[in-house]
Design a protein around this nucleic acid. Sequence first.
DNA 1: CTAAGTTGTTCACGAATAGAGAACGATGTT
DNA 2: AACATCGTTCTCTATTCGTGAACAACTTAG
Lengths: 252, 252
Amino acid sequence: MDQVLSSVRNSCRLLKIFLDSPKEIGVTELSKMLEMSKGAVHKLLSTLESEGFIRQNEKTKQYTLGYTLLELGTKVLKNHDIVDFSMPYLNRLVSRTNELVVLCVKDARDAIYVAKVDSPHPIRFTVESFRRFPLYSTTAARVLLAYQPAEFQEDILEEATLKMYTPHSYTSIESIKDDLLVIKARGYEISSNRRNNGVTGIAAPIFDTSGQVTASISVIGPSDRVLPQQEDILHETLATVQEMSAHLGYRS
Amino acid sequence: MDQVLSSVRNSCRLLKIFLDSPKEIGVTELSKMLEMSKGAVHKLLSTLESEGFIRQNEKTKQYTLGYTLLELGTKVLKNHDIVDFSMPYLNRLVSRTNELVVLCVKDARDAIYVAKVDSPHPIRFTVESFRRFPLYSTTAARVLLAYQPAEFQEDILEEATLKMYTPHSYTSIESIKDDLLVIKARGYEISSNRRNNGVTGIAAPIFDTSGQVTASISVIGPSDRVLPQQEDILHETLATVQEMSAHLGYRS
DNA sequence: CTAAGTTGTTCACGAATAGAGAACGATGTT
DNA sequence: AACATCGTTCTCTATTCGTGAACAACTTAG
């Protein structure tokens, strides 16, 4: 783990700073955030700029993310064939439930919505795609976590403890652990008012040939619309993931 | 210009290799393309992987682009406010012309379509967004090039010469240079069958407060549909860019 | 309108490490 | 069973990365 190219790691960390910051940042501010000298940061920036990963505003002299990252990000989506594969199913599930449907995958220690289809309702709950969030924080993510090895689960939940973060209406980390067992036992998850108040999510896992969980889908909407038709939505969701899993070659 | 962090530059080059390759690549192949030792490439890869910029397929052991690049790419789009600003105008122009409309910007030595609205026609011409292409190769890009300093134009066209690349129906690099003068003189460009046979593009520049060309828009479609209504489309396009420029604070 | 505080940028040097190249173990192919 | 090829690990030194201070170009304060 100490086998790491420090300047490469620094440049990665530098780029990620922009994810949670206003679009333009100056050298001085970056050097503080990275705890590096201004000179070194400047060298990083001009290297990244010459490769198109960073752009400098000619007027303000501050820096922004460059277009090459847009090219690469687009390529990531293209590579990810589960997205293309899933879109028809997501669309159908939206037309049957009239609520937001998302496709969620695990990446390292995080979850990401890699596809979504919005609810046709004028009043609707929306989420941000392509942005990481913790594996214990949303319905779809917890489904993914439930099928991970126990040690990995422990690790993730310990991180949650360290961050002193317990999702809404969970009284303790232990109760999440119980929840994961329930999810795996019955093969789906329904949760209300956890991360967002007044919002209910119904999620289930998608299996591939090797029996691994590759993704999960979730129907999410205002509790007062979702809860009354909870049974129907659950039925449609389970039918969808079973069909998807079957098409991926999974035999239960 | 020699003030460059070599390992950072190498990691950038490594990532860009994936743009023009199948989704998964092995260490050996990458080391050949980068002309580096396998050991060094492996170190690059594991550093990038620990930062989420690269992922390794557990079965094939080969490498792919990671999700962090998707996050960063999404952020680039969000930062770029001209895209949000332009969408209503692009949509309106499509509804008036019934052809593909694109928004094109210059980045370093390239052009990129950063937004597009497809034609409603069942038979339609489409383009790929977020992918770099030369500034001399499409109608919208040449409009951007026309407003650049003469020395920059020379530089770009010289590159075209070196690549032995002359866009279709240009007999020489000199004729492109003439074309650029015409574009700047009359403020728009109409070209047929240049990059794609049977395709016609009509493009015009958008100016900001400081009088700089920040982007260009182009209406593109099959020549047999576009040429007959050429006058109308040109009129609509010019009206749109004038309105957009005015809203950006440009005074002619 | 000067002086003090910013900013981004440059430079020189010593400590740290990046990259080459060979050897490794694991696959899969002949 | 021998061979080829893959990704990975290792060692070592020439290279270079990162620091800290000085720089010029602005903006702000008095």
